[in-house]
Design a binder for these strands. Structure first.
Length: 470
RNA sequence: GGUGGGUUGGCCGAGAGGCGAGGCAACGGACUGCAAAUCCGUGUACACGGGUUCAAAUCCCGUACCCACCUCCA
């Protein structure tokens, strides 16, 4: 079976046919770097990271471009509020985003262009649109340039909306627009804005409109036609609709497939406020590990709305530990298990069916159950193959616990040393307990175990002796 | 007004006409000195009302409720 993907433009799951055999170009709308990322923000990144990994695993040469919007109205407003330069805010928040994505093992894109670094290409694109009669400089002398939606008959094709059915924007200031639905390609500099937030252009200094940046960056790095364009559902309209219109109006075929991920929202209006900051990625990671947060996200289909709750998050973490425990016990028996095992047929079928990660995870659980049975019979090739298979499938989802991508500061040399020290101490206590057990002095044996437990360390008796874990 | 999505067992979360995905929790059993972990077993879930069909969570019609988006900012 071949990979099939849901295409927003056709509203159906279609076979994925790349423009060029064996190669896939993907453009994903990243974030506007205006504040710290919360779990909702990073879901999109995780979803498209899974797409990218599956394509790569399936043999495609993937070119993955994810942009950063580093200049826009919100950034200007927030930086003014905070009394710091806009570029400082954008830079700092970009760093936070990078950190957050690394903490959930999202691979760095092939390239991460920023809007401010692509201004000349945007100016070129706008010039083309003006030449072709699809854009015009505002008549009010503001220096704004607008896209002329009436000049593009197929406007609305992505979301299947007719221009005349759209709710008229009553509060919109028509300014120099010919039609209230025309959107800004270029925003003329205003005296209230910092001079550093403006770039030279034939229509006067100014800054790019929101939509033009993605058209320019996608074309620059992937070409006028590319395979997949992704982003959150809220971007379908107006952002993606506008990108599509302006790109096609400029003579570029643009994306073959449009993919949109659903949101994570918070439960109950009453709670949303109090949850507020606690949903920032670093804060969630005080409760669960990055790999567990990622597992939580991957457990739901990317097009399904997820209502975030800490209960569900904890449950997902418990579920993931079952898989992780299996791999640990297999490794204890076999030594290092290779990461290149085979994917089971159910897993492949699930992933090929529009990235059916919930079914893929179920397939992994089934293999783990088989593995747990094999574990009882001691080391074997079957066990090795099974564990390698689990690692391989987890790897496709970015969830292989042994992936170096999960190592952070806490698992460095210092942590290793600490672990060694704890091991010596616990081993001494376990020797006492073993003696007590040999003497059938259960009271003393359990007291030792309880004491260790009170320190936050669990003791499990396994066929190969007691094992400790934090 | 327009466009699209949703409502599944105690909980999370798949599926899209025909053997109850998977996980978490619970209960029973096996194993264990006791645990833990693991394995085996236990559920008559598809918002509501009609209809089509040998067969409907799944298709059709209607109803209710919820959500997203509708042109800088939404």
């Amino acid at each position: 079976m071949n990979l099939r993907l849901h295409d927003t433009a056709t509203r159906e799951v279609r076979d994925f046919v790349p423009l060029e055999e064996g190669r896939a170009g993907i453009y994903v709308c990243g974030l506007t770097v205006q504040s710290e990322p919360h779990v909702g923000h990073v879901r999109s990144a995780v979803n498209f990271d899974v797409l990218r990994r599956w394509l790569t695993a399936s043999g495609y040469d993937v070119h993955f471009i994810r942009n950063v919007t580093d200049i826009d109205d919100k950034i200007l407003a927030k930086s003014a509020e905070q009394g710091r330069p806009w570029y400082n805010l954008a830079y700092a928040m970009h760093a936070e985003l990078t950190k957050a994505l690394a903490s959930i093992n999202v691979l760095p894109p092939t390239y991460e262009p920023g809007a401010t670094g692509t201004v000349p290409e945007m100016v070129e694109l706008i010039e083309t649109l003006i030449e072709r009669g699809h854009a015009y400089a505002a008549e009010d002398g503001s220096g704004d340039v607008y896209f002329d939606v009436r000049s593009w008959p197929s406007y609305g094709e992505l979301t299947r909306q007719g221009l005349d059915d759209m709710e008229p924007a009553e509060d919109a200031d028509p300014r120099g627009k010919r039609d209230p639905r025309d959107f800004a390609l270029w925003k003329g500099w205003k005296t209230t804005e910092p001079e550093s937030a403006a770039w030279p252009a034939p229509w006067g200094r100014g800054r790019p409109g929101w939509h033009i940046e993605c058209s320019a960056m996608a074309s620059k790095y992937l070409g006028p036609a590319f395979d997949i364009h992704g982003g959150g559902v809220d971007l379908r309209f107006p952002h993606h609709e506008n990108e599509l219109a302006q790109s096609r109006a400029a003579g570029k075929p643009f994306a073959s497939y449009w993919m949109h991920n659903a949101w994570i929202t918070t439960a109950g209006e009453k709670m949303s406020k109090s949850l507020g900051n606690s949903l920032l990625v670093p804060s969630v990671l005080e409760r669960v590990r990055g790999i567990e947060l990622r597992f939580y996200m991957v457990s739901a289909h990317y097009r399904s709305h997820v209502e975030f709750s800490f209960e569900a998050l904890d449950e997902a973490a418990t579920s993931f530990r079952r898989i992780e425990n299996y791999l640990e016990r297999a490794a204890a028996l076999l030594g290092e298990v290779p990461a290149n095992g085979i994917w089971c047929a159910e897993f492949v079928a699930a992933m090929d069916d529009d990235l059916g990660t919930p079914a893929a995870v179920a397939a992994i659980h089934d293999v783990v159950r088989e593995g747990n049975k094999l574990l009882a019979d001691g080391p074997s090739d079957a066990l090795r193959g099974n564990a390698a298979s689990v690692r391989a499938m987890l790897g496709v989802l970015g969830l292989d616990p042994a992936d170096p991508g999960w190592s952070d500061g806490s698992s460095g040399a210092e942590a290793e040393q600490l672990r060694g020290a704890v091991d010596v101490l616990i081993t001494a206590l376990l020797e006492d307990r073993a003696q007590a057990r040999a003497d059938k002095d259960w009271g003393r044996a359990d007291a030792i175990r309880d004491r260790i437990k009170a320190a936050g360390i669990e003791i499990e008796d396994t066929p190969s002796g007691p094992k400790w874990s934090i």
